[in-house]
């Protein structure tokens, strides 16, 4: 199966090609994004520190990502627990609706929310972006949390109740610690998704651009591209750190509940 291995390695190169080029141009001392390279510079990173509009956008994005990931994870815990622990009529349909944004084109989510909010006479802002982001983060949170809740042994909770704990306290003392790694992993993934999401933010952000919306505006100006490359490099480093943390917690959770590690978030 040598050919298959060679193909897999080539495919990984294809997957990593864009990200690999990013730092090359971010440190390149030339305004044109093409080979040959001109020399090493830190100029573009220095410029990043001097753009107030960028800092504001980063602030907006971080705030939106924090609230979106918290809300998506709390709602995700409810859905994942209900879905794995209880049977009730209409469960499939209800979960189907909640998971729908996973396949729905983001532009559909964006314009439908836009239409409703404008009809209600509400003004757009960070809060409307949060509403949309929770919607698209929730399915990912549920997918991650499902894995944690599924591997949970119901007998543990029942034992706690038999020993005199209430339903709530047994959830807090037994269930929560066991699914905590899944919760942290869900928070990190939702945070990453929200931080990176463009279309919904583009439609719903009003006058306070998020980081991707700001980036989109910069892509039109060729002279700004090297700075965008520097920013992109930092973003990639940040997401890789977040994802590695999320993966670490996911694996720890898998180990804690004694399930075999099959890998992957979805």
């Amino acid at each position: 199966m040598k050919t298959l291995r060679v193909y897999a390695i080539l495919y990984l190169c294809f997957l990593y090609a864009p990200i690999a080029l990013l730092p090359i141009f971010a440190f390149n001392d030339g305004t044109i994004i093409a080979f040959p390279l001109r020399g090493f510079t830190l100029e573009w990173f220095r410029e990043l520190a001097e753009i107030p509009a960028l800092h504001e956008a980063v602030g907006n994005s971080l705030m939106i990502a924090v609230f979106s990931s918290l809300l998506a994870t709390v709602l995700g815990i409810c859905a994942a627990r209900a879905g794995t622990r209880f049977e009730f009529p209409g469960k499939k349909g209800i979960l189907g609706l909640i998971m729908l944004p996973l396949v729905l084109p983001e532009i559909i989510v964006a314009v439908s929310l836009l239409v409703v909010l404008l009809q209600l006479g509400l003004s757009l802002g960070a809060w409307s972006v949060i509403l949309g982001h929770v919607l698209i983060c929730m399915p990912f949170s549920i997918a991650i949390l499902n894995a944690s809740f599924q591997s949970l042994d119901v007998a543990l909770e029942e034992a706690a109740i038999d020993l005199g704990e209430t339903r709530l306290s047994s959830f807090r003392l037994i269930t929560l610690p066991l699914v905590m790694p899944g919760i942290i992993s869900s928070l990190l993934i939702a945070f990453t998704i929200s931080l990176d999401e463009f279309i919904i933010a583009f439609f719903l952000t009003g006058t306070e651009p998020t980081l991707p919306v700001y980036l989109w505006g910069q892509l039109r100006f060729p002279q700004k591209i090297p700075v965008v490359m520097a920013l992109g490099t930092l973003l990639v480093v940040a997401s890789v750190i977040l994802l590695t943390l999320a993966e670490y917690f996911r694996r720890r959770g898998a180990a804690r509940t004694g399930q075999a590690d099959s890998g992957g978030f979805l």
Binding site: C78, A79, E87, I98
Partner: peptide, 19 residues
């Protein structure tokens, strides 16, 4: 089950199904 699924369901109804 319904009690638990209610918050995410209401959220999805209000911000996905209605829109």
């Amino acid at each position: 089950g319904y009690l638990l699924i209610a918050p995410p369901l209401l959220y999805a109804l209000a911000l996905l199904a209605v829109p």
